[in-house]
Design a protein around this nucleic acid. Structure first.
Lengths: 138, 138
DNA sequence: ATGCTAATGATAGTCATTATCACTATCAGT
DNA sequence: ACTGATAGTGATAATGACTATCATTAGCAT
């Protein structure tokens, strides 16, 4: 049922090629620049389909949804509210405790999302830099 | 600067009166029914102001933001993707490990959000009930 | 009581995402 | 390879949650 199209291949390739956390608009812009423009609606549908197929993963950040490549290992995110950057981390013990909580509550956990909001090292140590004020807030 | 108005008192009272996780629309509807109608824009501003003042808390769920009363203790949420219900839980060890991760990364954590998505006990054991299909998906 | 200014509320606007729809492309079965 | 069923595309309209605007109202510091 899920068809392989040039548009989806382009989207998938771009996401798998880097550690960037893309949102639909950024991805569409990048595809235009690389000469393989894809309609914005198709980008949204493609991202949704690829996520459904387990080929990419997503992080819901406020009103925006960002997509990233799939790692071998699940990870969570540190979100800098100054510059919008996402940093990844892995903490197996947290994962284990989450599963344990769900188990205790009779809750069949399918998924989870852990976001730590705050100021990243770079922003915390260079906040005299006025340029950073232009960074997107979350 | 933050003024006390009947509208905000009504909003605060409603949220503090129950364990319900309200969103702006639901709250506005409830206020209309209780005879103290408040403009939808005022509800949004009131919720934001009350959260800023530390009188209520919020959980960002997909595209919607829900508000809840402040407990003595921080808690996280189990989100049922079948019926949309929110269940709360506390796991101090997870909290501690989060702080430790941030510390190690040189990240100044200000806040966090942990959501466990899945099927709650009620939905998991009564999914033959067709009515549940009408439940709002997250 | 008075005035400064925050708050209200009706409504218009914003913005990310989804639906629509005519058309195109994939792919399974011949 | 041909072809039909149907999934995908893309331009654009629609949706829906939230925010801005602005004239008017109302806390609250003095």
């Amino acid at each position: 049922m899920l068809r392989v199209t040039p548009q989806r291949q382009a989207i998938l390739a771009l996401i798998n090629r880097s550690n960037v956390h893309w949102d639909a608009e950024e991805l569409a812009r990048e595809l235009v620049q690389s000469g393989q423009a894809v309609g914005i609606a198709t980008v949204y549908r493609g991202l949704s389909a690829l996520e459904g197929a387990g080929l990419i993963a997503s992080v819901q950040l406020g009103d925006r949804k960002r997509y990233e490549r799939i790692d071998k290992s699940h990870h969570d995110h540190l979100v800098c509210t100054e510059c919008g950057s996402l940093e990844e981390f892995v903490q197996p013990e947290i994962e284990r405790l989450q599963a344990q909580v769900a188990e205790e509550k009779g809750f069949r956990m399918l998924n989870h999302q852990l976001l730590l909001f705050g100021i990243c090292y770079a922003c915390d140590n260079h906040d005299s830099n006025q340029d950073l004020d232009k960074g997107k807030k979350i």
